[in-house]
Design a protein around this nucleic acid. Structure first.
Lengths: 215, 215
DNA sequence: CGTGTCATGACAGTTCATGACATCACTCGT
DNA sequence: ACGAGTGATGTCATGAACTGTCATGACACG
């Protein structure tokens, strides 16, 4: 039997999620997390570079799956960019589906803090870049790959968000599949309302102050 | 004459940009910035909530312009989502064009630090959400507005990036205008290469370790 | 049995961030 | 003109987030 339990890292993550959920992210201290996990604060920083990382540590687990799906899709599924996107996002959605409860809790914490939201977005940007590279490896042009990855992630992000928020039985995979065809029609959508008074002017008429540093 | 100069804020921003550029963001301390600007560290925090904010303070200056452009576009320019997007992104591009040099310097600092990149992305997410709201006010459906805003920002972000990186004479407006039509064709693009060995398997063959916590 | 490794604890030190309070020039009402 | 604000600032104190360094004890290996 080892002198120290070998699940220190897991217990730190659990303690952090619990305390963040109870007390809120900013008001939870490293000392509290470490004490809750039965270790010293110094040990926390040996496992995680900073306070945020405890929420993002196991975060890239699904990226290889996504990249593999793109790299390994057969001819039929990779016939066009759209079908490839449909396939890859579907696989990702299926992989995420089981952990809905933990994801929702984690999302609630992340949404509560700007810095955390920023880090989440930075992670997504890293994923997006990796996906674009994988698409280039499949023979798409740099420009196409970039636009495709951006659109795919925008779509998936929105589907994930509504899926986490809603409580109905519609699966994440189905939400993604429904959203995908919209890209084809959205550019030709026509606004229903005419031009309105400008936002700035409305703000100015309310507060009599234009947000500018000119005197 | 006032006892204290009234450009403290500006001098703090200048000092911060200078020192960040020279010493790097993490190794520049608030004390150094404050000293360089001739004030105390406490004063720094009276002007900016935290160390990061000195880089993002005047950041929402162009958002009202973008929202006004969307809200006030005439019938011809708002005929379809695509033409409205073309118009709004063009106006934004023109507004940004003159400050290319400062933007590039700022971008270099932001790219050097994950937390800063995250905050920049969070800001863009805020903009994107505001734009989607403006589009809804124009009569687009929630879903369409969201997808349009996401696509528009992805496009603009990419154009801005290449524009800052390249040194040629192609204007930002022109880059955006060139990228926009691609959305219509990109979904039907066909990958040129067949399925390849999976990324994970390649990584496994190299390191003999699959990134998973299963024993 | 000796030696090295590894996760950890303990302690000190730096930086960021914030609250409490004092200061000093300027402003405004009387 | 004079005294009471007002506002931007400085000084001091405190807490929390990290960081460097050294000591310790169990385990692995020969």
């Amino acid at each position: 039997m080892p002198r120290w339990p070998d699940d220190t890292r897991t217990r730190l993550v659990d303690a952090a999620l619990t305390l963040f959920g109870e007390t809120g992210y900013p008001s939870t201290t490293i000392d509290q997390i470490a004490a809750h996990a039965g270790v010293s604060a110094r040990t926390f920083f040996r496992h995680f570079g900073d306070k945020e990382e405890v929420l993002f540590a196991d975060d890239d687990a699904l990226l290889p799956l996504l990249l593999d799906t793109i790299a390994g899709a057969d001819e039929a599924r990779a016939a066009t960019a759209e079908s490839l996107m449909h396939h890859a996002l579907g696989v990702l959605a299926d992989a995420i589906e089981p952990s809905r409860r933990e994801l929702a809790a984690r999302q609630r914490i992340i949404d509560s803090d700007v810095a955390l939201a920023g880090r989440e977005l930075a992670k997504q940007a890293r994923w997006q870049s990796a996906v674009a590279t994988a698409l280039v490896a499949r023979g798409f042009s740099d420009d196409d790959a970039d636009v495709l990855a951006a659109i795919g992630f925008a779509l998936f992000r929105r589907s994930l968000h509504t899926w986490l928020a809603a409580n109905d039985a519609v699966s994440l995979r189905e939400r993604v599949a429904r959203a995908l065809p919209r890209i084809r029609t959205v550019l030709d959508a026509r606004p229903a309302h005419p031009a309105s008074q400008s936002v700035t002017q409305m703000a100015a008429s309310k507060t009599a102050r234009i947000p500018s540093d000119s005197p």
